[in-house]
Design a protein around this nucleic acid. Sequence first.
RNA 1: GCUCAAGUGGCGGAAUUGGUAGACGCGCUGGAUUCAAAAUCCAGUUCUUUCGAGAGUGUGGGUUCGAUUCCCACCUUGAGUACCA
Length: 948
Amino acid sequence: MQYHFNEIEAKWQKYWAENKTFQATNQSDKPKYYVLDMFPYPSGAGLHVGHPLGYIASDIYARYKRHKGFNVLHPQGYDSFGLPAEQYAIQTGQHPALTTEENIKTYRRQLDQIGFSFDWSREVRTSDPSYYKWTQWIFIQLFESWYCKTHQCAFSISELEKLFSEEGNAGVNAACDDDVEYFTAKEWNSFSSDKKLVVLLKYRLTYLAETEVNWCPALGTVLANDEIVNGVSERGGHPVVRKKMTQWSMRISAYAERLLQGLDTIDWTDSLKESQRNWIGKSVGASVTFNVLPNVTLSADEGSHKIDVFTTRPDTIFGVSFMTLAPEHELVSQITTPEQKAEVEAYIQATAKRSERDRMADVKTISGVFTGAYAEHPFSKRLIPIWVGDYVLAGYGTGAVMSVPCGDQRDYDFAKHFNIPIPNIFEGIDISEEAYADKDNTIIANSDFLNGMNYKKATKRAIFELEQLGQGEGKTNYRLRDAVFSRQRYWGEPFPVYYVNGMPQMIDKAHLPIRLPEVEKYLPTETGEPPLGRADVWAWCTETNSVVANNKINNTTVFPLELNTMPGWAGSSWYFFRYMDAHNDQEFASEDALKYWENVDLYIGGSEHATGHLLYSRFWVKFMKDRGFVGVEEPFKKLINQGMILGTSAFVYREDGTNKYLSKGLIADINVHPIHVKVQYVNASDELDIEGLKNDGEFGEDFKDAEFILEDGVYKVGRDVEKMSKSKYNVVNPDAICEQYGADSLRLYEMFLGPLEQYKPWNTAGITGVHGFLKKLWKLYVGENGLNVDDSEPTKDNLKTLHKTIKKVEEDIENFSFNTSVSTFMIAVNELTTQKCTSKQVLEPLLVLLSPYAPHIAEELYSQLGHNKSISTAPFPKFDESHLVESSKNYPISFNGKMRFTLELPMDMSKEDIEAAVMAHEKTKEQLQGREPKKVIVVPGKIVNIVG
RNA sequence: GCUCAAGUGGCGGAAUUGGUAGACGCGCUGGAUUCAAAAUCCAGUUCUUUCGAGAGUGUGGGUUCGAUUCCCACCUUGAGUACCA
């Protein structure tokens, strides 16, 4: 009987689906284990062999954990809102819901054929109203919350209102907008309800704010920095301008410290934690207030300005020789003297044209302009000229810096360029060539009360003195910015928000979900409003509590709804909770389910989400914990980034100016142009199937009349490893692999390629290795005339092979070293085949070991051994050390550390006897050639090393 | 620039606490089987070599009886990030 993988795989996939083999229960005596993949965006192109890599790894782990007696939750779903579907809708007019549905079907078929043990009964789709109902609900909770910095915790906004009415806001230590004004309880209570709403909005964890964005008028949308190339949109090349827009923001900055601290409690890779730390960007220093000197030409009212700066080096405060403001800084226009006005305005105009990215990329050019105004040094009272320079970013700190040229290279370069003095405040340091930024060896000089102090002491003293003056305090700054949460798109979650007198109002939970309205086109409106501005039925009636036609808007009972939609990361920031109780229509998940499953034990996905999805999810979970909705502080306990599988592109070489294609070895110094060809026309020896290429439906025409110049009778292509992509014709489809070799071969081969975390090239030719292994495995169990397995007693060698395999495979899975397991299986099958093993006592446990990796063949053989329950219910074999105990050791005999020969000696031989046996050996004498050994190292059971 | 990875045969990679470098597989070479092919099986395959042996894990040092593994400096590649005050 042969190994008919197609039949076997279809049979067991059907069995698993029909018997709900992998359905997890929310009640169990077994310990729980939650294995999660980053859910895919269902793109139109379907899966290529790179996509399932992480899913296969997590599936192996999930199946292993089931064998180990865990109740495993291993769900899958779709991140199904997103731009490609919308773009396709704009081009074709097809509703994104339809194309998304189609794409999901393809994905599901492809995933099913690989034999994953997903619990599909818990599938979620972020674009499903029954799912985004809860995304909207969480948004409302964020709106109804504020963050107390003293307690480091979010609370209900009603508690804040109570505080305000009892004691005003002076004593409230909240994460809020910078521009809140102080008020007393009495004042608060006298505010109109509209005014109260305005004030509260400054405290809410999601709030409306004017944000500067990259606006592309032609596309009617906001673009991310990387969607802009050379100042124009990447798609279409339209001009882009900086524009202020009112958008929803998330106050993630409130959680900066906890997001940073939490990293120490989770098992993620160091590189990933490091990216998040960089992103959060904590820096400790001080804020310093400089008074701007009254300018005689300005009125008294305009004259009393203050500039706040943040510095990490308050110890260098006596080294300040100028200040620099970002061109966008609001004080610039107010303090500039009439003489400098024209120059400053010209400079601001020039910098406004450059995108933020351009400005950052061009570090070399030093530019700036003097405002004509001066500030006063808080201690020395010296005059400090105030400059404008675009090396200061408006978005970081206060958008202004105290420039200490002797201690900061950028300040130094700026000072040199504009001939500003560079006072030296460092003891014994030469600053004639460059700034001195070494904190550890700093001794302060020329600095009044700071003289002679080191960095630490001087910092402490400077902050103390600033506080005495009321012109500064110790401060910690974070680079992490609040996240913009509005998108001018159609295919995303609608906000559960309507507007009364321009103030946002939340729709009550009872009326969720607010479903996406129908529009006739998916483009922005002619007036530049988002696509939802095209909907005719998009107003909120507070009497019927329903979405009604726009023409009913009267602003007394019927109000306009929000036109923006939520960003891609909204739905993905909490989906891991929904899997716990996916069909609950009363809550996002029940308390019991949340309590049982807690959080994700193992999360596998790509490292490209390091600072997006993985940071936002942590933020939402911390918020939900604060408000008592969940019991955990972190979403993902352990996280592994799978590496990317790269494609091996193939090239043919056209001789310039001809229609001749030269085989790779013939190029020499002839001028040729390499052209990508589809990898399916290339065999394992890099030989091109010329006929196949010429008959290709898509490109055959291009090569029809081409002449292929062969070497040794074949055309050899060139190869290069590149990212797998359609445009490089190196995409390999798992469907074809499954059909030709089977899902078990695909699973084994993806693992066999190399370590999970590494980037590695795909080469279909190599799959014959693992496929051959499966055939060999099959032959070990099934002969010409039926099963080869019997009840015979295993031999010592059989047991040794089995138990070393158990040991290795178990260690490998625990270490996520799946590639070495595959080798181990090959070795085991090779050995057992040589041993002609037929013993069920050995061959049955081997199947359980293999089943996480190659579940179909394992199920089939297991059932042929007489079982009528799925192999997934079998316990993992127990390792028994006693089978590996050896009585002798083949010692490597080294001379000066180099192994020269081996010698078989009993395991229990003493050190002295080993040395004697080695020294007596004739090859030892040969090696020494008469020399007397200086030293003989004997490590019993390991090695002998002779020095001399 | 900074941070984090990673450099081992023709290729993917193995060597888990410092102890036989190149497991396992691909590819290649030779052979068996076959009318032939596929499939299968067997043997060989780091480099050099005067066939005795010698060298060898990016480069150069160091620690050690012994280093792919530990330390220092450097080079290369990849990823992320950036005038962050």
